[in-house]
Nucleic acid binder design. Sequence first.
DNA 1: TGAGATAATTGAGTTGCTCAATCAAAGGCA
DNA 2: TGCCTTTGATTGAGCAACTCAATTATCTCA
Lengths: 144, 144
Amino acid sequence: MRIETFLKQSPMFCIALTARRFDTLTTHLLEADDLNFLEALIISTLFFESSAAVKPSQLAETFGTTRGNVSHCISSLEAKGLVQRKIDPEDARAYHLTLKPQGRKTAIRVIGALDKVQREFENKVGKDALQSALRVIRSLAGST
Amino acid sequence: MRIETFLKQSPMFCIALTARRFDTLTTHLLEADDLNFLEALIISTLFFESSAAVKPSQLAETFGTTRGNVSHCISSLEAKGLVQRKIDPEDARAYHLTLKPQGRKTAIRVIGALDKVQREFENKVGKDALQSALRVIRSLAGST
DNA sequence: TGAGATAATTGAGTTGCTCAATCAAAGGCA
DNA sequence: TGCCTTTGATTGAGCAACTCAATTATCTCA
């Protein structure tokens, strides 16, 4: 069986398969900190945007998922003592999310782990090649 | 909240997020034929490699999943009348998979749908850019 | 022949998600 | 002011796709 033949004949499957591998890779990386992908996205966002008001609805929109999902993940993060819900004084339905000290530590670790992978990638194919490939792929993903 | 800032600061999250979007895109495409991703991979493989002996263990290895998963998916495909298990005359533990006529039709439809997306992508960023980006990304995914 | 090794299956269990129903607060508007 | 609609978030049931360990069936070879 020549899988390579097949992959050549249907590049889209190749893209999809590759996407899946990246997803798996990331998932495994985050396992060490007992986080799923969305949880990791959330605390990293908080890390970089700690001063701003981060609301669940924005997170859902930005990361292309449902509010329910975000809500579940935030509850999970809260249970782990990584984040804190704070009622928005201007709108008691909404709230702001903030990182707790432990959450900040975890965020740093997670971001570091991903950066390490990125550097490995750069070493493998070159920084410029990686950058331009990413630009192309991202423009496709965003538009669909 | 400036998510863009965040994405710039951690490109790996960007890759992972993009990968996820592609995965979602593919999954939605396959919904019309009531197939999951692995099922689609399997019948497409059979379509391109119909003459050869395709065994579950090879599929699992090639697509980076467990035998259990492949087994489940094959059962599902069989229940839908798309593939057939045929005992390997040289090894009664193993078997060969073959496409049934309905499975062939489905495979053609699925491959066509993916090709259509590919052409859209090519129109968007140019054939050469897509090719080279894919080469880069795939070399990374394969190695990790 | 009998002791592993190997191919595949099975089914229970997990995870990460969606979706609809619900709650609570906000914002008109007569 | 009181009512109606809209909006932000939560909840919990349900689902799809997967893994993992146990099991079955077959093969290999000394």
